[in-house]
């Protein structure tokens, strides 16, 4: 009996704790937006963060994109040729990448590469009292440290997702057309006929922007909110990756159901 009560009590306190953190995260988001002025006025701060979040993620994004596209090419061809429609390989590769895989996989990679780095950096600044020192120097750490990293992530993510998708399509083309021998013209023309710019490409871009906001916010929040110890930082990094992945998948479901509901 006491075990049940103890269990319920733990569940209850966890729930309260989560709601409390969510509220704090929301207020924090508001503060970040409020203090964003500086990251636009002093653009070089944000450009620096675009370098760390975007440029340093380039390699993993490009290589993964290529491989994901190549796998799609192989698997897609395998399935499509059973129905004698291997010409539609381009459509399959392009649609799955622009709509889903591009934003989602790029978002997951971004969370584990750039998101964790942002959390670690802000967390370490907190451990070594750099944030407090900044605050004592009458410089708001949210304006100077958090907001530029947030916007750097928000700007980088759609570009990375677009690069991932483009690389993936090239990977699918490489396997399908160059190695297997699907007709080059059919590959591109069927793709162009089936992929609509506003409907498919733009919705993918919108998804990647939303994921960029979510991952960047989670990363800066976990870093800012971490317990200022070595263990606290490592736990915050884990939380960043896990919550970002969950957020991306859940948001993807919500966005997909809004964007593609009841249509083709």
């Amino acid at each position: 009996m006491s075990g049940v009560i103890g269990f319920l009590r733990r569940v209850g306190s966890r729930t309260v704790d989560m709601v409390w953190r969510l509220g704090f995260a929301t207020r924090f988001f508001g503060l970040v937006l409020l203090y964003s002025g500086q990251s636009f006025r002093r653009l070089h701060l944000t450009i620096r963060e675009i370098y760390f979040a975007g440029v340093l993620s380039l390699l993993i994004i490009l290589v993964s994109g290529l491989f994901v596209g190549m796998v799609l090419g192989l698997q897609g061809y395998e399935t499509l040729q059973r129905f004698g429609s291997s010409d539609a390989l381009g459509v399959l590769v392009a649609l799955s990448l622009t709509r889903e895989l591009g934003p989602v996989v790029a978002g997951l990679l971004f969370a584990s590469r750039a998101g964790s780095a942002i959390t670690a950096e802000i967390g370490l600044m907190k451990v070594t009292e750099q944030l407090k020192a900044m605050d004592m120097m009458a410089v708001s750490p949210i304006a100077r440290v958090v907001a530029p990293r947030f916007w750097g992530g928000v700007v980088s993510m759609p570009l990375l997702a677009a690069l991932f998708t483009a690389m993936g399509i090239l990977g699918g083309w490489l396997i399908g057309v160059v190695f297997i021998g699907v007709d080059d013209g059919a590959f591109w023309s069927q793709m162009q006929a089936a992929v609509d710019f506003r409907y498919d490409v733009m919705n993918g871009v919108i998804k990647s922007i939303v994921f960029g906001v979510a991952v960047s916010l989670i990363a800066v929040f976990e870093g800012y909110d971490c317990t200022p110890t070595a263990e606290g930082v490592s736990r915050a990094i884990t939380r960043t990756v896990v919550s970002s992945a969950l957020a991306i998948l859940a948001l993807d479901f919500v966005l997909t159901s809004f964007m593609f509901r009841g249509q083709s």
């Binding site: 370490l124 600044m125 009292e129 750099q130 020192a133 900044m134 004592m136 120097m137 009458a138």
Partner: peptide
């Protein structure tokens, strides 16, 4: 606070800046 200076226990220097930029930080900000 602009008229206060504080020395933290282990210095709390900004690890991503050089010594020069660290000292220049308050001047450039304010």
């Amino acid at each position: 606070r602009r008229r206060m200076g504080m020395l933290f226990q282990f210095g709390a220097l900004f690890t991503d800046m050089s010594v020069f930029d660290n000292v220049a930080f308050p001047l450039r900000e304010h």
